[in-house]
Nucleic acid binder design. Structure first.
Lengths: 203, 203
DNA sequence: CTCCGGTGGAACATCTCTGTTCCACTAGGA
DNA sequence: TCCTAGTGGAACAGAGATGTTCCACCGGAG
């Protein structure tokens, strides 16, 4: 399959690349991501309509609804893992790494927002496992920070990770609903996470 | 209706109060609360079964599913408002009031957890309005703290409230799923909220 | 031009949930 | 004892969604 695609591409002159037609699969997934973000109960018919394709076509690519959700979940997890990789969790002091996590993950809001929608997605074992592994990665980061004395040790790492990730979800929501300014959200979230609400002058 | 109930009660001797039979309505609401907390899509049939009553009876009390959800939402908001009242938001420094909020609200997890389940509940205008007013109350508290110099002013109040409430939701989840120890959760959450993750020794 | 893969549309069976109606039963009060 | 309100069960219609099948169409490759 890959070979065939490659050979076809090679036949074309590289110069006037005719705006490679986006695979239908991707169009459907984008539409689903965007639709499910605001309406977790969106039916396959609605998703198909939003993607501009027939319901039959959706069904040909994703035989069941679970297949579609699963593909979306895998995609989301991939992006998340890429973001964590880009944050270089093992480099430098843990708090700085956490700050990079915010910078890398927060912009993904549009593509991950749909996750908070339905429980259907979290019912997928792959999703639970994948998320668990992400949380475990962050756990390890926080624990490293605690060992190295850069993160307070009097609060369990799991609770820190839980509060941290939840705060990020909340800020996503706030951005979506217009309660939080997108541009400065990352910086403020980092400030809060590192220093809490106590003003710097009072410590 | 109220009068009739009162007069009946008055006829009984107060001494051997025969364990007043719990109104069916309350039984149903409790069952629904508990069931929806883990399965937002629970059908009325499942809820009725969990409550130990017939589906017909549920339907007699709550003509439509929306009526039931609405009643649950109102109940949850009432409890939340009571908790905020008990936290005496206007007394003393704002950070201490916030800390009391955690102490009062966190134990409500069992009764409020079902809120994170379905979007159905948040679609109710009463729920959105009610929650909005709760958030506004917290906003005001944070702003007071900022005016009085007890809460940092370089982060918008809405973002603080957003991150704070989200962290609380997250800790609820963590408790439910066994990732977070219930007994110490409130204290740790307060510690994090006030001081962030930076160890006290490093400031 | 012809063929053919991919597509869209229509129709269908099936399932599940909701909301409604009707009837039988039972416990407690008059 | 009889009556009645409240209840539970069964059955029904309707709505919506899913998954399947079949067929017509179109555009590009040969």
């Amino acid at each position: 399959m890959n070979a065939r695609r490659t050979s076809r591409a090679d036949l074309r002159p590289v110069t006037d690349a005719p705006a490679a037609p986006e695979p239908v699969r991707d169009v459907v997934m984008r539409a689903a991501t965007s639709l499910l973000a605001t309406d977790s109960g969106a039916s396959l018919a609605e998703i198909a309509a939003a993607a501009g394709v027939g319901r039959t076509t959706v069904h040909r690519i994703f035989p069941t609804r679970a297949d579609l959700l699963s593909a979306l979940a895998m995609d989301a997890l991939d992006r998340l893992r890429e973001a964590l990789a880009a944050a270089r969790l093992d480099d430098g002091p843990a708090p700085e790494a956490l700050s990079r996590v915010v910078d890398e993950v927060l912009p993904l809001a549009d593509e991950l927002r749909f996750l908070d929608a339905g429980p259907d997605i979290w019912d997928l074992p792959q999703m639970r496992d994948g998320w668990w592994s992400v949380a475990a990665t962050l756990d390890a980061l926080v624990q490293r920070g605690q060992r190295e004395g850069d993160i307070r040790g009097d609060v369990p790492a799991e609770l820190i990770v839980e509060a941290f990730t939840s705060a990020m979800w909340g800020v996503w929501d706030g951005i979506r609903d217009g309660r939080v300014a997108p541009a400065t959200a990352a910086r403020h979230l980092v400030t809060l996470t590192l220093g809490g609400i106590t003003p710097p002058t009072k410590r």
